[in-house]
Lab assay of single mutants.
Amino acid sequence: MQIFVKGLTGKTTTLEVEPSDTIENVKAKIQDKTGLPPDQQRLIFAGKQLEDGRTLSDYNIQKESTLHIVWR
């Protein structure tokens, strides 16, 4: 499925993911596209910070959802 990651600059990155992907895995995909290391990424969805060990489905993140990224 496709999801979007929007940064503070307003730039949006598209990712191809599975609902079973962990947040850690998603951060690795973001690094592949942007070069930003996972330890500098904070992902937010529906006002919650996403924890590395959880999956996208744990947070009810579905296709075409938009996550927000904040740099540490």
Rank of each mutant, 00 (worst) to 15 (best):
I23Q: 01
L56C: 03
E51M: 11
G53N: 11
V26P: 00
T14Q: 09
D32L: 13
F4T: 06
K33L: 14
T12P: 09
W71P: 13
K48T: 12
L8P: 14
N25G: 08
K6L: 09
Q40K: 14
I30Y: 12
I61D: 00
T13V: 15
V5K: 01
P19I: 08
L43C: 01
F45K: 02
F4Y: 13
S20N: 13
P37T: 08
V70F: 12
T22S: 08
S65P: 01
E24C: 06
D39M: 09
G7I: 10
I3D: 01
L50Q: 00
P37E: 07
L67V: 11
E24G: 11
T66S: 05
L67G: 01
A46S: 08
K33C: 06
T66K: 04
T55Q: 07
R54H: 12
G35E: 03
K63S: 15
D52K: 05
P38N: 07
N60P: 03
Q49Y: 12
S57N: 11
M1C: 03
P19R: 06
K29E: 03
I30R: 00
K6T: 13
V17H: 01
L36D: 04
I23V: 09
L50F: 02
G7Y: 14
E51Q: 10
Q31M: 12
A46V: 06
L67I: 15
G53C: 06
K11D: 11
Q31L: 08
P37V: 07
P38I: 14
R54C: 08
D52N: 10
W71I: 15
G35M: 04
Q41Y: 15
G53M: 09
V70S: 10
K33Q: 10
Q41H: 09
N60H: 10
I69K: 01
A46G: 10
K11I: 13
T14N: 06
D21C: 05
Q31H: 15
G10L: 09
K29A: 06
T22K: 08
F4Q: 05
T34R: 04
E18F: 14
V17F: 04
K29L: 09
L50G: 01
A28K: 15
D52M: 05
Q40E: 09
Q2G: 04
T12M: 14
L43D: 00
G10D: 07
I3M: 02
I23G: 01
K27Y: 03
F45G: 02
F4E: 03
R54G: 05
Q40H: 12
P19S: 09
G53L: 08
R72I: 15
P38R: 14
L67D: 00
I23L: 04
D39A: 12
T34G: 04
W71C: 11
T14G: 05
D52F: 04
Q49V: 15
I23K: 00
K27L: 06
Y59F: 04
L15I: 12
D32R: 12
I69S: 03
D58Q: 06
R72L: 15
W71G: 12
L56H: 00
V26F: 02
E51I: 08
S57H: 08
G35T: 03
G35N: 05
S65T: 07
Q31I: 03
A28M: 14
S65H: 06
M1E: 01
I23Y: 01
A28E: 09
E51F: 07
K48A: 09
T9F: 15
E18G: 07
A46P: 01
P37I: 07
T34F: 14
G35A: 04
I3W: 01
E24A: 14
N25R: 15
N60E: 06
Y59T: 01
E16Q: 11
N60I: 03
K11M: 13
Q62L: 10
S57E: 12
V26K: 00
Q62F: 09
N25T: 15
R72P: 14
K48V: 15
T55R: 10
G10A: 08
Q62N: 08
R72T: 15
I69L: 15
T9R: 12
L50P: 01
I44E: 10
P37C: 07
F45A: 03
K33R: 09
E18P: 03
S20C: 06
D39L: 09
Y59W: 02
T34S: 06
T14L: 11
Q40L: 11
R42L: 14
V70D: 11
V17M: 03
L8E: 08
I61T: 01
D52L: 05
K63W: 07
E64Y: 14
K27A: 02
I3E: 01
I30K: 00
L43E: 00
H68E: 13
I69F: 07
P37H: 12
K11S: 10
Q40P: 02
N25P: 00
T14I: 14
T34H: 07
G7R: 06
I23S: 01
L15T: 01
K27I: 03
L50Y: 01
R42P: 02
Q49G: 07
F45S: 03
W71N: 11
Q40Y: 11
Q41K: 06
Q62C: 05
I3S: 01
I23F: 02
T13D: 08
G35S: 05
T34V: 08
L50I: 04
I61P: 01
A28I: 13
V26N: 00
T12Y: 11
Q2T: 15
